[in-house]
Nucleic acid binder design. Structure first.
Length: 331
DNA sequence: AAAAACGACAACCGCCCGCAG
DNA sequence: ACTGCGGGCGGTTGTCGTTTT
């Protein structure tokens, strides 16, 4: 028996989903639960690929999804987690239960990447090696006076993030409000879904005048402006006046203080069922002996954990690290 | 006012993996 | 052990709204 195609390429509909289609899909999920996506098109009459149905549900219609602008805290978490995990958007999303991996990925590609790049352009010289790829400054060759300070802060920051990650990964399930929900997709009420649909329809009805998109754009811009204003590019002349330099900009971007005060709790409390899956995944990877490209986070981790290497200049290790060969490969 | 450029985001695509038969 | 299926994931593209020229 030959393998059935995922979807009928001829009859399948593509493009934006209509409210009617959304309602059909939500109704189906309400009745049958999320899963068996292959049966969805036939059972609902939707002329959509099963995969498209699943994506529509997980990225847009699923209950509990928060849409709109990202908070500063979310932004910081994304930056931290991206630095630690790379482009593992699903893993990152597991720590932000209200956000989808697609949302986070888009936000990273459209906002954070630019923000980091902008920071790089404005805060570093041409020979500086600020890694936009993972939001980590690798070396500050022309600011030797602040390098030691930067390295210490980076070390503290990485330790902090590691602790937070460790807390999240070793989390006692009973303490997490999210873990209690074994399967949020199934156990969530349809009311949540209808809220999404209602919101959706509202958006469509308003689309003729003003859209969420524009609101989002504005708020996103506001977010950017807020963060930027506290970074070096907010005051272009500040750096030349001896004001906020790379170090402070880095701190601001990574939100050291705020993250320090909240990261561990944040990580712990937002650990989701997906985080458990990630936990398993990471543990599995830890057990694997197959040589894989070593991520920067691992290098940093090894370096930080190995007390014998405390005197080693991190710059040496890090500058030898090839991002092109890493799994990050963002730009 | 119109066209072009830009930005944001939803959706698609291809690859991969785990599981079941 | 092999094969097919369902589903997850990350990268990329398409579309539409907004801004600039």
């Amino acid at each position: 028996m030959g393998r059935l195609p995922c979807c009928d390429k001829i009859g399948v509909k593509k493009g934006p989903w209509t409210p009617e289609e959304d309602i059909m899909l939500v109704s189906y999920v309400q009745e049958h639960g999320a899963g068996n996506w292959r049966a969805v098109p036939t059972k609902t009459g939707l002329r959509r690929c099963s995969k498209s149905c699943r994506l529509r549900w997980t990225n847009y219609l699923r209950p509990g999804i928060k849409r709109g602008n990202f908070t500063d805290q979310e932004e910081k978490m994304i930056i931290q987690l991206q630095a630690l995990l790379g482009n593992k958007w699903a893993a990152i999303a597991s720590y932000l239960p209200e956000r989808t991996d697609n949302d986070i990925k888009n936000y990273w590609n459209t906002h954070l990447k630019k923000k980091l790049k902008k920071l790089q352009d404005q805060c570093t010289g041409s020979d500086d090696q600020f890694s936009v790829e993972n939001g980590t400054h690798l070396s500050s060759s022309n600011s030797s006076t602040s390098r030691g300070q930067w390295e210490r802060t980076l070390q503290a920051d990485i330790n902090m993030a590691k602790k937070a990650l460790h807390n999240a990964l070793t989390l006692d399930n009973s303490t997490s409000p999210y873990i209690k929900q074994e399967n949020p997709q199934v156990s969530s009420t349809y009311a949540s879904s209808t809220e999404n649909i209602a919101r959706l329809l509202q958006g469509w009805m308003r689309s003729s005048s003003s859209t969420n998109n524009s609101e989002n754009s504005k708020t996103s811009s506001n977010n950017t402006a807020t963060t930027d204003s506290s970074s070096c590019d907010g005051t272009p002349s500040a750096e030349s006046k001896g004001g906020m330099g790379l170090m402070e900009a880095f701190e601001t971007l990574f939100g050291m203080e705020s993250f320090e005060s909240s990261s561990s709790d944040e990580f712990s409390q937002t650990a989701s069922p997906q985080a458990e899956a990630t936990k398993v995944e990471i543990k599995k990877e830890e057990n694997e002996q197959v040589p894989v490209p070593v991520p920067l986070s691992v290098i940093l981790e090894n370096w930080l954990l190995d007390e014998n290497t405390l005197n080693i200049q991190p710059k040496d290790d890090l500058t030898n690290f090839s991002f092109d060969e890493s799994a990050h490969g963002l730009f």
